[in-house]
Design a protein around this nucleic acid. Structure first.
Lengths: 117, 117
DNA sequence: ATGTCACTCAACCAAATGGTTGAATAAGAC
DNA sequence: GTCTTATTCAACCATTTGGTTGAGTGACAT
């Protein structure tokens, strides 16, 4: 009987953005360095337009920012946007503080950026 | 030119599950106690069938488990499933270790479970 | 000025999502 | 056995999502 009026918070957009493997891979790329849209797109098999859409979604979620310098648009990781979501998640568990090692293993696994030849 | 063959990892399902406000609210409910499906559904305005679907999604994501005892199916939070995702996220930032206070404020905000009268 | 490079827009498509209702199943209660 | 409670299933619907292609725009190169 309670209201539970659920407005769409930032968490909606952030988690939705993170739910796509391509977008997570993009974030991983940007973890290394800022990149132009074309360069972000290069490792993927999908069209540039599709990547452009993914980047728009990441931007709307605040996970990256895009700045146009000349004719190239630079994409930059904005890790602050994750803080809110991270805080939310940590409330559900007694997770070990950081465990960067596990994260490294994870990236190696998910990125899977080896040449297949 | 690299492959970037992206298999759907657990992260896909976990983040997708977390992207819905109803499902996050369900998790918050279960944070307090294990509950039967009907009781989970009670605070929401949507149909029981809809809640049942949400619970199935949360189960597939491993975020909760469901055990049928008699004719009622008990739902139990499984916070371990969040660990993987939490680790992934923390790799993207220098987030403060836990900050439970911020989380409390968050819950208060998102749950919004007050009677509106 | 003409071309080319970097990127987005628009229209379209198939599949997935979140919801509905009504019937089906399964277990207790009487 | 019959009724009711707990939950899911099935069919359906509207909207969103992730992708495509082809045309459009804006900035640099020659």
């Amino acid at each position: 009987m309670a209201a539970y009026a659920q407005m769409g918070t930032d968490l909606d957009t952030v988690f939705a953005a993170l739910a796509d493997p391509t977008r997570r891979a993009i974030l991983s790329l940007l973890l290394e360095d800022d990149m132009a849209v074309t360069d972000v797109a290069e490792p993927f098999e999908i069209s540039l337009a599709a990547i452009s859409k993914h980047l728009a979604i990441l931007t709307r979620a605040g996970l990256i920012s895009q700045e146009k310098r000349g004719r190239v648009k630079w994409c930059k990781l904005e890790p602050d946007a994750l803080r809110e979501a991270s805080v939310w998640m940590q409330g559900f568990g007694q997770f070990e503080p950081v465990n960067l090692d596990a994260f490294e293993r994870f990236l190696a696994n998910e990125l899977d950026g080896e040449e297949t030849t």
